[in-house]
Amino acid sequence: MGIFIDAFRGGLAMLVSGAADVWTIVLVSVQVSGAAVLLALVLGIPIGFMLGTKRFVGRRMMLVIANTGMGLPPVVVGLVVAMLLSRRGPLGSLELLYSRPAMVIAQLVIAVPMVAAVSAAAVSAVPRELRLQARSLGASPLQVAIMTLREARMGLLASVAAGFGSIISEVGAVTMVGGNLAGKTRVMTTAIVQYTRMGDYGAALALAVVLMAMVLAVNILLTRVQQSAERYEQ
């Protein structure tokens, strides 16, 4: 067990002393995944709203795609995004490969189906009659949509948590499109892989603790959401 104790001591020292390396990595992680999650909400919630409330041709198909997207293998996303952004790819002229925007794009592709599927479920749990009721009191279509999202807010929070949780701990895609460049595109997960390979268990464990803390926080939020979700079932 000595290995754990030593690594723990070393890692703790790093975190406490504010070793620039470790905290930069954490910061890059939060920036990339934060940006990706925000964009995923902007795109995913309207899609989820459509899927959850409207009846249109192709809806079932889109739901299947969104639900499949939740299980999309990140390495596949990494591969496709890397190919798109590679010098010979269709978006190669943007020169984005091995940059943070490339990582944001890859994480976005992973998170949007997740956010769309979870928010579709949340929105469709709002009774149709409630929307009819809002309309009957004079609400415009936009006002009905705002009311619906407000009613589904706990579920929407869950979609944020699910989206964030899925990409902050993802390693395959970000390595492939980010390249794990120190100080630039190195994030917690890729750094943990790197430090572990180098035998620097202290640094790896320190990052693992921070990552775990974030995932734990997200899951605590999710659990609380689920507890307060039994609202129309009285």
Partner: peptide
């Protein structure tokens, strides 16, 4: 106009 329905759906 204003309406009320069979099940009184209320907003949170």
């Amino acid at each position: 106009m204003a309406a009320a329905f069979q099940r009184p759906y209320l907003f949170k």
